[in-house]
Design a protein around this nucleic acid. Structure first.
Length: 705
DNA sequence: AGTTGACGAG
């Protein structure tokens, strides 16, 4: 083999380079090429490229495409212009389609411009496979070193959910600009790594790079997401100094940050100072009102927006539909549903998710499922929402079915889905199942957020294991009102009223501010312990000391408290003074109390109120008939029973259920419908005979002593 | 000539 000295190659390349230069400079070539340049072919390309760009800029994509298709010759700029048109119009499929056609054209060489666009399309289109192929090609041809290609590449990985690969690309970039930094910070923040995002932000800051509105906006979002007011204020100051606090992106994020950190006066002031709020400003305002629990005002703001110049978009609809969901205003919600369906906004995940929540919260689980099934793509929020819907409506089995479906085909469950599954386990009171979900949470290494911890406390106390609940509670940070509240409610539901009230007193001593849910636990503890006067004083102090206006549930607790103590007149007064529509739950509580205390007239009044809404309520009719019977008013009792028969109203029997292995069996008294019924009764007989034997043994023991 | 990143949803 002949070995050439390395200098030989050096010389070779120099010669080629020189000869190329010579070639271009030679008078012969100049005269031969120039006529070509001046002929009507190549200038055409330039002119067409310019025209395509103009078409794309003015949104005339069809015209741009027509011109592009008719061009006799295209260069990489023509391709870039038309691809960028499709990508910016969110038609990623067509953008990538054109890109692959371009790649097979032997006259075209891909360059960093068109590659960045193709990578962006992959990121926005969830085409990770194509993205990886392009990554390989970029490494091979060295274009990976372009700061544009590198930024698009790391953004593509981050958008596809591969944040560690994204970081790897970022670390290996030979050159980084403010876009690369913003892209990696955005990836981290959106993946929930807000602290890390802020670390990167301060590193970028220290590196002396000039921050712009994009980087300030995402840094402020990171602060908002983790309620980091201190950093938020620092970044606000810097944005102010650099004059970026006026751009709509930064102002919107600033207002949201202050609101999320509880600085409502400041946040609302920022919203108010926006001279012309854009659609995001309006949407953030509506969202803030929803988060503050002021949904009525949120809807009012939506009406104001509707009368303004700004057109609501899918995020706005998602926000206002959520407001309707919280208010339980199904009639408004349905109007909005119809509107977004017509406008095509239902394709947006945020809108479909909020519509699902609307139907779940209004008790229309079938409609919620229908929306869920029709969604062509589902994200973690969609899955969590449908699971939470079934869970909160008390359909434990369905919630578990959706959960297993998600485990098989859906995204990785997050704390929201797990919290729902813990809540379902709690309301089904199946400890073993709750423990399994707990184990699952530990296994996936989910952070023990306040949501998960409070869900665990509630689950264990509802399953009767107050010991496990206390253990979880002891591991929580002592400034978390939610966990504290779960434990107060846990003790209260478990009948440990004094423990609940004691913990509540400690909470006040620790300087924590109880919320409306805490008071539900406190009042029900008083109710179970029969502490009427104490209950009254807590009921009064919640509004006087903490400005918490009592909601329907608080009135419900008070009515229950007074009913249990037999103070029916006061209970009736409480019902009459509450500013909410008295629901069937409260009337039923009152009705049961009337039955116990033999107050026929009040019972009849309560029953009438329930029957107004629900004329065939079997429980109410039966209770009323029983009250008449107990008082010897046989005729009235018989009338009710006759009415029930004529309407075909049958009182459902109370049922019990048991979980064996993975099967939950429900049964009523004397039930023989279970497929293994014969076997069960045989075992039952055997056990009963065993009881007899035991009884006899006990007898003999007694006799012996 | 043409390219990359941001605020609002459970």
């Amino acid at each position: 083999m002949i070995m050439f000295p390395r200098t030989y190659f050096r010389g070779y390349f120099t010669r080629i380079a020189n000869s190329t230069a010579d070639l271009l400079e030679s008078p012969l070539i100049k005269t031969q090429i120039n006529p070509l340049i001046q002929s009507n072919k190549i200038p055409d390309v330039l002119e067409c490229n310019f025209q395509i760009k103009e078409f794309v800029k003015t949104g005339r994509l069809e015209d741009a495409r027509k011109l592009f298709d008719e061009m006799p010759q295209r260069d990489v700029v023509s391709w870039t212009n038309v691809i960028s048109g499709y990508v910016n119009a969110s038609n990623y499929d067509e953008g990538l389609n054109l890109f692959s056609r371009m790649c097979v054209d032997p006259c075209i060489r891909v360059d960093p411009f068109v590659l960045s666009l193709a990578l962006k399309a992959c990121g926005l289109n969830n085409s990770l496979t194509n993205g990886r192929l392009l990554h390989g090609a970029c490494v091979k041809n060295g274009l990976v070193n372009s700061v544009f290609v590198g930024s698009s590449l790391l953004d593509m990985y981050a958008k596809s959910g591969y944040i560690s690969e994204s970081c790897l690309v970022f670390e290996q970039m030979p050159e980084k600009n403010v876009v690369s930094w913003t892209a990696i910070i955005t990836g981290l923040v959106k993946a929930g790594y807000c602290k890390e995002g802020l670390l990167y932000f301060s590193e970028m800051w220290r590196s002396g790079l000039h921050c712009d509105a994009y980087s300030f906006a995402i840094a402020l979002k990171a602060c908002a997401d983790i309620c980091d007011l201190e950093h938020g204020k620092e970044i606000h100051t810097q944005a102010l100094k650099k004059g970026f606090d006026l751009g709509s992106y930064v102002v919107n994020t600033l207002a949201t940050m202050y609101n999320k950190c509880g600085k409502l006066d400041y946040g609302m002031c920022l919203f108010g100072r926006m001279t012309i709020p854009d659609v995001v400003g309006w949407t953030s305002l509506i969202t803030s009102y929803v988060q503050m629990g002021k949904e009525e005002i949120a809807v009012q703001q939506f009406k104001r927006l509707r009368d303004s110049e700004v057109r609501p978009n899918e995020y706005t609809f998602a926000a206002v539909i959520t407001a309707c969901a919280h208010l339980g205003r199904i009639n408004w919600g349905e109007q909005l549903h119809a509107h977004v369906m017509r406008a095509g906004s239902l394709n947006a995940l945020s809108v479909a998710n909020s519509v699902m929540t609307l139907y779940s919260r209004c008790g229309q689980l079938k409609s919620a499922s229908l929306v869920f099934d029709c969604m062509t793509s589902k994200d973690i929020v969609s899955w969590s929402s449908i699971i939470t819907g079934y869970s909160q409506a008390g359909y434990g089995k369905e919630a578990f079915d959706y959960f297993s479906w998600m485990r098989r085909e859906g995204p990785k469950p997050t704390e929201f889905a797990f919290a729902s599954m813990l809540s379902v386990s709690g309301s089904m009171a199946i400890l073993e199942q709750g423990r399994q979900v707990h184990a699952h949470v530990l296994k996936v290494g989910l952070k023990h957020t306040s949501l998960i911890q409070s869900a665990l406390i509630t689950m264990y106390s509802k399953c009767g294991s107050i010991k496990d609940a206390s253990e979880i509670y002891n591991g929580t940070s002592k400034d978390d009102v939610v966990s504290w509240t779960s434990m107060v409610n846990g003790f209260a539901e478990h009948g440990d009223s004094l423990e609940a009230l004691d913990l509540f007193d400690k909470m006040l001593l620790a300087g924590l501010r109880p919320d409306a849910v805490t008071y539900i636990g406190v009042l029900s503890a008083c109710s179970h312990a029969g502490l009427v006067d104490l209950g009254y004083s807590y009921f009064n102090s919640m509004s006087q000391k903490f400005q918490i206006s009592p909601c329907k549930e608080h009135y419900g607790c008070m009515v229950d408290l007074l009913c249990r103590a037999g103070r029916l007149t006061e209970a009736e007064n409480m019902i009459n003074t509450m500013s909410y529509e008295v629901d069937d739950v409260i009337w039923s509580t009152f009705l049961r109390a009337c039955k116990i205390h033999g107050d026929v007239e009040r019972a009849r009044h309560a029953a009438e109120r329930i029957l107004e809404h629900n004329p065939n309520c079997a429980g109410t009719l039966t209770t009323l008939a029983n009250i008449y019977s107990a008082k010897g008013r046989w005729r009235e009792a018989a009338d009710i029973r006759k009415l029930m028969r004529s309407k075909g109203v049958v009182k459902d029997a109370g049922s019990s259920w048991i979980k064996v292995k993975d099967e939950v069996s429900t049964f009523v008294s004397g039930d023989k419908s279970h497929p293994g019924g014969d076997h069960i009764y045989n075992i039952l007989d055997l056990l009963m005979s065993g009881v007899d034997v035991l009884d006899k043994e006990d007898d003999s023991l007694l006799q012996a002593t």
